[in-house]
């Protein structure tokens, strides 16, 4: 370019990203249905599960301690994967993405905004879930720093994988109207085969093997190592918590999701050409 070219945006990259995140959170918090359903859904689910299975899973550990792991994981899946895979096609249809593309906003800022929103919502939603479960259903919170640390990295890696896959999956739906129909079954099937609603090891072996391809199973397994006594590790399909494998699979999904995002993301609709 030439001498007339102006200096780049005065706001630094960090400020740009945070601003976009703030905008996303503002939009989310003003959409009452989204707030109520996203925040309350996992808590309602734990109420239902804890009421149906109010006994022990064995060894003096109640069922809440098992199902909380599925509910946390499913909550992160819904915040990261489902909401983005439905929301982004809607924004694409409304022309929001095309309009942003016409500004000097760097592309990554849009994604940063989504990621910040997802992390904040995921954090609050998980906290609500833990509070309800502890107060009303006798959930015992992790008892050691090491377990909290595992909780942290499994949560962060898990929600990152879900978010990246959600953004990548947003290119699958051709229109905003078809997005929920495309996304919901994927999430629901993953939940059934990954041990969210049932004890994982009670599932048929082939189903366990299919589930092991996808991140949700590994998020649940990692979280079980946080909320269940170590004696339960022997009952896992691999005979241990396999935390290394958890990190590896979730990390791999982050990479796959990121590559798909970069290569397939569309700022305009199909009819825009």
């Amino acid at each position: 370019m030439t001498a007339l070219t102006q200096t780049p945006a005065t706001a630094g990259p960090l400020a740009l990203g945070l601003r976009q995140g703030g905008l996303e959170i503002k939009q989310f918090s003003r959409s009452r249905e989204a707030v109520v359903f996203t925040m309350a859904f996992p808590a309602i689910m734990i109420v239902i599960f804890a009421s149906i299975f109010d006994g022990e899973i064995g060894g003096g550990v109640n069922f809440t301690q098992y199902f909380i792991t599925g509910m946390i994981a499913t909550g992160l899946l819904s915040v990261g994967f489902q909401s983005l895979a439905i929301q982004i096609p809607a924004e694409r249809d409304r022309g929001v993405l095309k309009r942003l593309r016409g500004t000097p906003m760097p592309q990554w800022v849009y994604f940063a905004g989504k990621v910040i929103m997802v992390f904040v919502v995921g954090l609050v939603e998980t906290a609500v879930l833990l509070a309800v479960s502890t107060l009303f259903f006798g959930l015992e919170l992790p008892g050691s720093g090491a377990r909290w640390l595992t909780f942290l990295w499994v949560g962060v890696l898990g929600i990152s994988a879900c978010t990246l896959c959600g953004i990548a999956f947003s290119s699958v739906a051709r229109t905003a109207r078809s997005a929920p129909a495309v996304v919901t079954p994927v999430a629901l099937i993953l939940q059934f085969i990954s041990g969210v609603f049932f004890v994982f090891t009670n599932l048929p072996t082939w189903m366990q093997q299919v589930a092991a391809i996808f991140p949700l199973k590994w998020m649940c397994q990692g979280l079980r190592s946080v909320f269940l006594p170590d004696s339960f590790a022997a009952q896992e399909p691999g005979g241990s918590w396999e935390l290394g494998k958890v990190a590896l699979v979730l990390g791999a999904w982050c990479v796959i999701g990121l590559i798909l995002c970069i290569t397939t993301f569309r700022w305009t609709t199909k009819r825009d050409g």
Binding site: T5, Q6, T7, P8, A9, T10, A11, L16, R19, L23, K26, Q27, R30, S31, E91, R94, G95, V96, L97, K98, R99, L100, G102, T103, P104, M105
Partner: peptide, 29 residues
């Protein structure tokens, strides 16, 4: 250096006029 007003409007449903304009202002030098 280029301003674009597209044919279709891309809406930001839950934001106010002022919030949207201020946000976009932040994209420009």
């Amino acid at each position: 250096r280029v301003g674009i007003v597209l044919q279709g409007t891309g809406e930001f449903d839950d934001l106010t006029v002022s919030e949207v304009v201020r946000h976009f202002a932040g994209f420009y030098p």
